[in-house]
Amino acid sequence: MRPFRLLVLLLVSGFSLPAAAQAPRTVAGVCGRTNWVCVSECIDAECVDQCMREGCEDALKRLKACTSKAACAPDDSACAAKSCGLTCEKSFEPAPKSPEKLVTHPCEGDKAPKGTAVPKELVGTWVLSAASIPDTEDGKEERIDVQPRSDYARSLQVTPDGCFVMRTKLDDATLGRGSTLDVRAWGRLEASEAKDKKHLALRTQDGQAVGPVCGKPRVVPLSKGRFKGGEFTYVIEEKDSLILTVPGPTRQTFQFEREKQEAPEPPPKP
């Protein structure tokens, strides 16, 4: 791993904007839009955990206890829906009366957000690989052993015309059997350079949480959420490693690796 500020390797992690680590407001002790808006602007796993606390965490504990008692297999969503359907429904905010239309490609079309022209080196999809853990008491960074979080996967997509998509995938290890969500936030990316430092600002505008919940497909709109966005300085090392640093006393740092495109399979020999 490249030597820079005490990075703790997270094999597959989540990731957060500092302001988003504030405790979310929950509705009636269930998991809902407020939690997903909070998750959508997270970078580190601790922030995601904070977003899932309060009433949401208790609701998920009850759901996991139910599926464990029912002895449902980890990949048996039908068992979870049949045995714990009511408990599951009580754990999440109900689906809206008019189903939200899925936005498949937020950065395409006339309504796609547009920021400043993005340097070519930033364009592409980046996958989080590591994050520093700051000491919140005095602002110094401290290396801490962290258990890798296989249930959070985090990526950042950047387009040439300044649109970005932040994505966190929550699987059944977090949400309970029969439920997975792809939590996405998107908006304008503004890139600039001043005093030999490159700056990157994310202005979140909208988002969705998409996936099966309690065995049923859901599209949860996040457009009415209170997005905070975030600002960073950045450097790119060896063309394939993006390092974001949060301004301020903690200097919290996040490392992303450029997503590698899989080579197409060769055609079969005649």
Results as ranks from 00 to 15, higher is better:
residue 75 D to R: 09
residue 75 D to I: 10
residue 75 D to E: 15
residue 76 D to M: 04
residue 76 D to W: 04
residue 76 D to S: 13
residue 76 D to Y: 04
residue 77 S to D: 13
residue 77 S to F: 05
residue 77 S to C: 02
residue 79 C to V: 08
residue 79 C to H: 10
residue 79 C to L: 07
residue 81 A to E: 10
residue 81 A to P: 04
residue 81 A to K: 09
residue 81 A to H: 06
residue 82 K to G: 07
residue 82 K to H: 12
residue 82 K to P: 02
residue 82 K to W: 05
residue 83 S to K: 04
residue 83 S to H: 03
residue 83 S to R: 07
residue 83 S to N: 02
residue 83 S to M: 07
residue 83 S to W: 00
residue 84 C to P: 02
residue 84 C to W: 00
residue 84 C to S: 00
residue 85 G to R: 04
residue 85 G to T: 07
residue 85 G to E: 02
residue 85 G to H: 01
residue 85 G to V: 05
residue 85 G to L: 01
residue 85 G to P: 02
residue 86 L to D: 10
residue 86 L to V: 14
residue 86 L to N: 10
residue 86 L to F: 08
residue 86 L to Y: 11
residue 87 T to C: 00
residue 87 T to W: 00
residue 87 T to S: 02
residue 88 C to Q: 11
residue 88 C to I: 09
residue 88 C to G: 15
residue 89 E to W: 05
residue 89 E to Q: 12
residue 89 E to R: 15
residue 89 E to G: 06
residue 89 E to N: 07
residue 90 K to F: 12
residue 90 K to Q: 14
residue 90 K to D: 11
residue 90 K to T: 09
residue 91 S to F: 05
residue 91 S to N: 05
residue 92 F to C: 10
residue 92 F to A: 09
residue 92 F to Q: 06
residue 92 F to V: 05
residue 93 E to V: 14
residue 93 E to D: 14
residue 93 E to C: 07
residue 93 E to T: 15
residue 93 E to F: 11
residue 94 P to Q: 08
residue 94 P to K: 02
residue 94 P to T: 09
residue 95 A to K: 15
residue 95 A to P: 14
residue 95 A to F: 11
residue 95 A to V: 14
residue 95 A to W: 12
residue 96 P to L: 09
residue 96 P to E: 08
residue 97 K to P: 08
residue 97 K to M: 08
residue 97 K to L: 13
residue 97 K to V: 08
residue 98 S to P: 02
residue 98 S to H: 08
residue 98 S to Y: 02
residue 99 P to S: 10
residue 99 P to I: 07
residue 99 P to G: 11
residue 99 P to R: 11
residue 100 E to T: 15
residue 100 E to D: 12
residue 101 K to T: 06
residue 101 K to L: 01
residue 101 K to G: 01
residue 102 L to Y: 14
residue 102 L to M: 14
residue 102 L to D: 15
residue 102 L to G: 12
residue 102 L to T: 14
residue 103 V to K: 12
residue 103 V to E: 14
residue 103 V to P: 06
residue 103 V to A: 07
residue 103 V to F: 10
residue 104 T to L: 14
residue 104 T to Q: 13
residue 104 T to E: 14
residue 105 H to I: 08
residue 105 H to Q: 15
residue 105 H to V: 07
residue 106 P to W: 02
residue 106 P to G: 06
residue 106 P to Y: 05
residue 106 P to D: 03
residue 107 C to K: 12
residue 107 C to V: 04
residue 107 C to F: 03
residue 107 C to T: 06
residue 108 E to G: 05
residue 108 E to Q: 13
residue 108 E to F: 11
residue 108 E to K: 13
residue 108 E to P: 04
residue 108 E to A: 10
residue 108 E to C: 04
residue 108 E to S: 12
residue 109 G to Q: 00
residue 109 G to R: 00
residue 109 G to K: 00
residue 109 G to N: 00
residue 109 G to T: 00
residue 110 D to H: 12
residue 110 D to L: 08
residue 110 D to V: 11
residue 111 K to Y: 03
residue 111 K to L: 03
residue 112 A to W: 04
residue 112 A to Q: 03
residue 112 A to E: 12
residue 112 A to F: 09
residue 112 A to T: 07
residue 112 A to H: 06
residue 113 P to K: 05
residue 113 P to A: 03
residue 113 P to R: 02
residue 113 P to W: 04
residue 115 G to H: 04
residue 115 G to L: 00
residue 115 G to V: 02
residue 115 G to K: 01
residue 115 G to S: 02
residue 116 T to Y: 13
residue 116 T to S: 15
residue 116 T to A: 15
